[in-house]
Simulated scan of single mutants.
Amino acid sequence: MRVLSAVAVAVLLSAPAYAQMPNVNLMPEVKTRTQEEKEQDAVRDKAYKDSLSKIPDAKGSSDPWGVVRSDPPKAAAHPAKPKTKTGSSAQPGSAAPRSQ
């Protein structure tokens, strides 16, 4: 008897949740298009592609802050000096000052 009442309670509690589920048809009926509809679509597609070809290409700078900056963009960083065997960046042949 307890099992039957537990099943009845579960059914009663799930009924409102089932009522809120959307009615989704996963297998809609296949609609075929007539030749007239296909021709209208072709005309619409051609008109759309023609209108896209009339839009000019943007040739301007893509830097939105370009007119605000006062200094020109900085050049690339200077190349690093070659390091010697000791790991210092001093020029070979130059003597470093030594403390006495």
Rank of each mutant, 00 (worst) to 15 (best):
P79C: 02
S70Y: 01
D50T: 02
A80G: 07
I55R: 10
Q91R: 07
L52T: 02
D50I: 00
H78Q: 07
P79A: 08
V43I: 12
S89C: 05
A95V: 13
Q91K: 08
D45E: 15
P82F: 01
Y48N: 07
A90Q: 01
A80H: 09
R69F: 09
P72H: 03
P82N: 11
P92F: 10
K81H: 07
G60A: 13
K83L: 15
D50S: 01
K81N: 09
G87E: 08
S51F: 02
G93E: 11
K81A: 13
K83E: 12
A58Q: 02
K85P: 04
S61F: 11
P73V: 11
S88D: 15
A95S: 11
Q91A: 09
A42H: 09
S89R: 14
I55W: 02
A90H: 03
S62F: 02
K59I: 08
A95P: 00
A75S: 10
H78E: 12
G60E: 14
R69I: 02
D57Q: 13
S62Q: 03
L52C: 07
K54H: 03
S62Y: 03
A58F: 13
D41S: 05
Q91M: 03
A47L: 15
P82C: 02
V67K: 07
A80E: 12
V67P: 00
S62R: 06
P56M: 01
K85S: 15
K59Q: 10
V43T: 01
A95M: 08
D41T: 03
S88E: 06
D45W: 06
K46T: 06
S89N: 13
K49G: 04
H78L: 08
D57N: 10
V68T: 10
Y48V: 06
D41W: 08
P56H: 00
A75H: 04
R69Y: 09
L52K: 05
K85D: 14
G66H: 06
T86R: 06
S51V: 02
A58C: 04
S70Q: 05
S94V: 14
G60P: 05
L52D: 03
P64A: 14
S53Q: 12
A96I: 13
D63W: 00
P82L: 08
K46W: 03
G66D: 07
S70K: 10
S51G: 05
V43M: 02
S88N: 13
K54N: 03
K83H: 11
A42K: 14
P64G: 07
K49A: 14
K74H: 00
P73H: 03
V67R: 01
R69W: 06
Y48F: 13
W65S: 05
S61Y: 09
A80Y: 07
K49S: 10
P82T: 10
G93C: 14
A95W: 04
T84K: 14
